[in-house]
Each structure stands twice: as C-alpha cells, then as structure tokens.
Amino acid sequence: MDKIIFTGPMGAGKTTAIASISEIPPIATEVRCSDEEGQARKETTTVAMDYGYFTLDDSVRVHLYGTPGQERFNYMWTILTQGGIGLVLLLDNARPTPVEDMAFYLDAFREFIETTGVVIGVTRMDVNNQFSLDDYRDKLFELGHIYPLFEVDARQAEDVKILIHALLAILQANME
C-alpha cells in the first residue's frame, strides 16, 4: 500500500492538509477535546487517524494518513507508518513551544524518517510569528538535520502539494 503520513501536534492542520488534496472528504475519527489545551484551541481532535486518498493515472491509490495529534495516542503512530512512503510533519507556530514540538516529532519518528524522508511545514505563522523559520532551521542544524522546511497554509492545496513535491524530491535524491 502506497501511503504518505501526516503527523504533528494537535491543531497543526493535518486533517485540513489531507482534505485539501484528497479526492474524498477525509474520513476522520474526531471527538470532542477533553483536555484543557484542546478545548481552548479546537472543538474536536483526531483520536485514531484521518484518511484520504488520491488516484494516479494507472488507478493506483496513494493513501493519505493523518496520525492523532495527542501523544497519548502514540501507539497509533507506529502502526500507521508501516509501509509509508514518507512523512509530512506539520507544526503549529502558535503553540507555546513549536520548535521543541519539531524536535519531539523528529525523534518520535526517527526510524521511519531514516528509512524514508521527512518534510516540515510550519502553519499559522500569520497568527503568531513568535518563531521564524530561522528558529526552526537553527534547531534542525543543532540536531544535525537539513530537512525541507516551509511556511504553509494547510488550507491551500498548493502549499500541501509543495510539501509532497519536496518529499518526493528528497526521496528521489536518496535513490540517485
């Protein structure tokens, strides 16, 4: 099964990103937020996964899976990444420590990233510009990574496509 995984903290725009390029309305497993942060940020959150897909010319489907944002559902992360093509990490710049969020998710998905690739999209920079892309780059440099990093609007299909283009470009470069 050919699948691309979308991950990141709650509210980063994973469900929205999948919706923007999926041929079908994403199948979501959303429930009302039960924790304080969640209630303050959004009404519902994904608890198992989001799912969408797009179809290629040869009728092959590329499946789009979104992981649940909350850490307590992290047992789903390993299950969902199995057989994945690569990872799209979305980060919410309006969260208190988005740069640390990035480090956390890169570590949590380290094995998957090492065997495939990752591309990072930072959302909601218009809402809160406390951190710039340079802050994320500095952290990546500190961690010894040079990953594609973009400011994106998860609602814009073009932005999500750029992320996937970049992901495929690094996967192809790894195979040169």
Partner: peptide, 12 residues
C-alpha cells in the same frame, strides 16, 4: 518507486 514517484508528481 521511481515510477510511483513520477506518477504522483504527474498527478499533483
């Protein structure tokens, strides 16, 4: 994989 990536890019 190359074929798949090429097709995805074409589709997008």
């Amino acid at each position: 994989e190359q074929y798949l990536f090429k097709n995805i890019l074409k589709r997008l």
